[in-house]
Amino acid sequence: MAELDRNPRLRDPDALFVRLVRAHLDLSPEQSRRLDAALVLLLADQLADSELLDRAIEAARSAVIARTEAA
């Protein structure tokens, strides 16, 4: 079964974070939501691995739900 690689893979994580945030700067909340969706769809198509995508969805959900419940 495919597993997420838990070792950091990005060469410049700070720069990526800024790029993602900047991409939303001039957008309405609705556009912003669509942008994220479009980005996920494009990246999912590039990844083209439905098992790995399932692991990513699970990891994202558990991060979000765990943090929300703890807060």
């Binding site: 609705e30 969706a37 769809l41 494009l42």
Partner: peptide, 23 residues
């Protein structure tokens, strides 16, 4: 809201991206 955002994103991507047309 999320379902609508994904739906709209698919429609916006469809013109230039074949994978989105399939969705």
């Amino acid at each position: 809201e999320a379902a609508r955002a994904y739906r709209d994103a698919v429609l916006l991507l469809a013109r230039d991206h074949a994978f989105a047309r399939a969705m």
